[in-house]
Design a protein around this nucleic acid. Structure first.
Lengths: 292, 292
DNA sequence: ATGGAAAGATAATTATTATTTATAATGTTC
DNA sequence: GAACATTATAAATAATAATTATCTTTCCAT
């Protein structure tokens, strides 16, 4: 029971004639006869009552015709479903990012959602060091990390620059200043993130270099909690600028550059080198690299 | 998008491997590769992520797989539907009969329904003279008439014998008798059916032959109404025995043979000589001829 | 009835399509 | 990076469906 045979069945039933059906199908009449008789031998029933020339279906023919039409409809539906996928009428983007890098994604997601509201975006929290592995294991399609991945099977694009910013409470003495020197920070109490981060070592060595005491009063695993503590005046913190931009713009926190701490880290959006990205992800990736 | 290609898609998705799928399909691995790539070029999307060996579907692959499974299910459903037809799990018998002959059908239908409760029986009222035409026009598959059809394309089987019976009210003087002579009927008032019937002429000529007055007081088009009038004592009537059997057996009417009126008419069940009878109708026909 | 036209069936041939065999390329794993 | 496994590709073969040609049947008209 081939789809094409079912098409012939439908054509004959519609045209009520083998030869007319042949014309509409751009086949010859024997081709139609043979297709029908193939169907008939397969299901073991006559489909048309040959005693009449008006293409009358048998009961079996009626039953099969019904299914044939449904199957053809389904095939058409399958084709439009795939087309919809291509045209981003549905689909999914899966991204892994960590607590820092996820902030970079926010404006990209916002813009993408505006353009393709029907695409689902699934951001999951990943540990930076493991994100390339997640990519390779196809757990996610895209990842955002703050280092260029070593894995040669992972391709990456630099998409944004991440720099450290000192955040202080708006009531703090430093609030309102543009920048500050490391030496001025000896008197401050710091709230630090205790996750393994490439920044951490660099910050510590910078303070040592400037013979300034780095007084870490609190260590926390949550960036969100750190920001709240700083807001309350419990201390100051050095955080990736992207993660505090929102609060700084709203005046909930004050942000200052630390003069001697100009190291920047590029954010990379990563994906499998040889993998097949979904249309949705491809478009997301393109948007991300364009929005740098 | 051929059904067989969709089967390959399903097999590969299930086995998560082209070569394993090839084994279960009893094909070689290149056959599977080619079938998939045929599908891919047709829909314009990759279906599997070849960068992995674990047969991961792309989003397009997932979407198409879903439809493929539905289509195969539908094909299986079509096959069982046709099988059901064959096994009388569903289907239809269409019969045309007139007011008289339909009574013959009752016990056949009763028995058929007992054996094949899922088959629909569609009895429609036809005018005897037109029933062969209905058969030829495929409006119905079977017909019951009280004459052998002239049309050589209509095949017929004698299935029952129809004889006239005189019905009288149970209170009537004749009630309780087995039979009566025509001469004794001159004093009776008759209620007659006014549809053109082969009996009518014969009855009239019989009465003439026996020099007995046939006093038709009422003519009606409804057998049912005639029976009710007779029941009420408004007169007597000559009706086909089959049509009054029920009332006679219940004692609502008394039935008598008229001695000189022994003409019988055979009932015939008819169908197209070269036509294709549905399974259901074939079985119905067989039962009808066996139950003679 | 009889002959002709039209529709469908059948047979043989041709064309198309799918499958196999053989081999190459690619990816995975240790 | 070598060995293994998996998939891709090419050419040949096999299988399948289409066409052409012909025949049979049915339907109409005379």
């Amino acid at each position: 029971m081939d789809i094409h045979e079912l098409e012939v069945l439908i054509a004959v039933a519609e045209e009520k004639s083998f030869s007319r059906a042949a014309k509409t199908l751009h086949r010859t009449q024997p081709a139609v006869s043979q297709a029908i008789s193939r169907l008939e031998t397969e299901i073991g029933e006559k489909l048309f009552d040959r005693s009449s020339k008006d293409g009358t279906l048998t009961q079996a023919g009626e039953v099969l015709l019904d299914y044939a039409q449904q199957m053809l409809n389904m095939r058409a539906a399958a084709q439009t479903a795939v087309k919809d996928l291509r045209e981003l009428q549905h689909g999914k983007v899966t991204i892994s990012a960590n607590e820092h890098t996820v902030f970079y994604l926010l404006p990209v997601i916002e813009e993408f959602k505006k353009r393709h509201p029907l695409i689902k975006i699934d951001v999951r929290r990943g540990v930076a060091s493991r994100i390339p592995k997640e990519i390779m294991a196809r757990d996610v399609e895209l990842g955002v990390i703050s280092f260029k991945p070593a894995d040669k099977f992972v391709r990456s694009h630099a998409v944004s620059v991440d720099e450290l910013v000192l955040i202080v409470s708006p009531d703090h003495a430093l609030a309102g200043k543009e920048s500050v020197s490391i030496k001025d920070l000896g008197i401050e109490t710091f709230i630090a993130h205790n996750a393994p981060s490439p920044y951490r070592e660099q910050v510590i060595s910078k303070f040592e270099k400037h013979s300034t005491k780095l007084n870490i009063a609190v260590e926390m695993p949550s960036l969100e909690a750190i920001k709240r503590l700083v807001e309350l005046g419990a201390g100051v913190a050095l955080v990736p600028k992207l993660t505090a931009q929102y609060e700084i713009s709203r005046g909930q926190l004050a942000g200052l550059a630390v003069k001697e701490m100009k190291f920047e880290r590029k954010l990379h959006i990563v994906y499998r080198r040889n993998g097949v990205l979904s249309h949705a992800s491809k478009v997301f990736l393109k948007l991300a690299t364009k929005m740098v």
